[in-house]
Amino acid sequence: MSVELLETVRRIALEAGALAADLRSEGVSVAASKSSDVDVVTAADRETEALIRALIAAERPHDGFYGEESDAAAGSSGLVWVVDPIDGTVNYLYGTPAWAVSIAVGELDPDAAPDAEPTASWRALAGAVYAPSVRELYTASAGGGAWLERLDRESGAPERLRVNPNPTLAHALVGTGFSYIAERRAAQGAVLGAVLPRVRDIRRGGSAALDLCAVASGRLDAYYERHINPWDHAAGALIAREAGARVAGLHGAPATSQLVIAAEPGLFAELHAALVDAGIGA
């Protein structure tokens, strides 16, 4: 099933990415704001999600859907699609290339609470993160590894992804991100101030999905972020895991909106300890 789902995820991500890129070339209009007046939704977010939802419904009418821009829907198949039509919307708004379509599908835990985040206890089966501006497509399936297709190369075969081997915290390049709510940003800045002296350097790309793929591809050694949504990390977390990363929250908890940490397992332990020391769970 994972192989079949992966092909569907891949095809839909490419089609949605093409639409989002076309809409970007026509100009961006802000349709609304979300958590604050600087956390925006564009008309392209909504149009791209509508396309993704329609394509999924046409092929998988009995699956559930959980997206950023439209109401969730329960399905009858036990599978759910978790979708961010444009992850990195502010980058998209400003014309910065680091934005992506993120699509994942997984098997729901039948014992999960009805209001639980779908990715907190699901079994991810397939995922794709497509960055149209640089024509890079990341994909993974459960047990099938993580892969990068560079679509700007005529004959380039997919590349198997592996996390950087045996990095230490002191030599780690670490990605993170920040909320658009001022109070949360202040707390995140305080944690960052404590972590920064203990690592090689910090990067803030603006797309959680792409940051997780960067861990998978070795462009980052690790990534952590608080207050992100399931659609931000669903596909990227699977891709990072299949590339050899450990992806989890604090003290063995699953990766949720409370916290996502992704790194090679040994580095994960070091970064986890540094984040606890910095008071991230306080």
Score class of each variant (00 low, 15 high):
A13G: 09
L14G: 11
E15N: 05
E15H: 06
A18V: 04
L19Q: 04
L19P: 01
A20R: 09
A20L: 07
D22N: 08
D22A: 12
D22R: 15
D22I: 00
L23G: 04
S25N: 15
S25D: 15
E26H: 04
E26C: 01
G27T: 01
G27I: 01
G27E: 02
G27D: 01
V28Q: 13
V28L: 11
S29I: 08
V30R: 10
A31L: 12
A32R: 15
A32Q: 11
S35I: 01
S35F: 01
S35A: 14
D37W: 00
D37Y: 00
D37L: 01
V38I: 14
V38L: 04
V41K: 13
T42R: 06
T42S: 11
T42A: 08
A44D: 14
D45C: 06
D45R: 14
R46G: 03
E47A: 11
T48L: 04
T48V: 12
T48R: 03
E49Q: 11
E49F: 03
L51P: 08
L51H: 09
I52S: 04
I52M: 05
I52R: 03
R53W: 00
A54N: 07
A54W: 01
L55A: 13
L55K: 15
I56R: 09
A57C: 05
A58P: 00
A58S: 02
A58D: 04
E59S: 14
E59T: 09
E59L: 09
H62M: 03
D63V: 06
D63M: 08
D63E: 14
G64F: 12
F65P: 07
F65H: 06
F65G: 05
F65N: 06
Y66G: 06
Y66E: 15
G67L: 12
G67T: 07
E68H: 13
E68I: 05
E68P: 13
E68V: 05
E68M: 07
E68T: 08
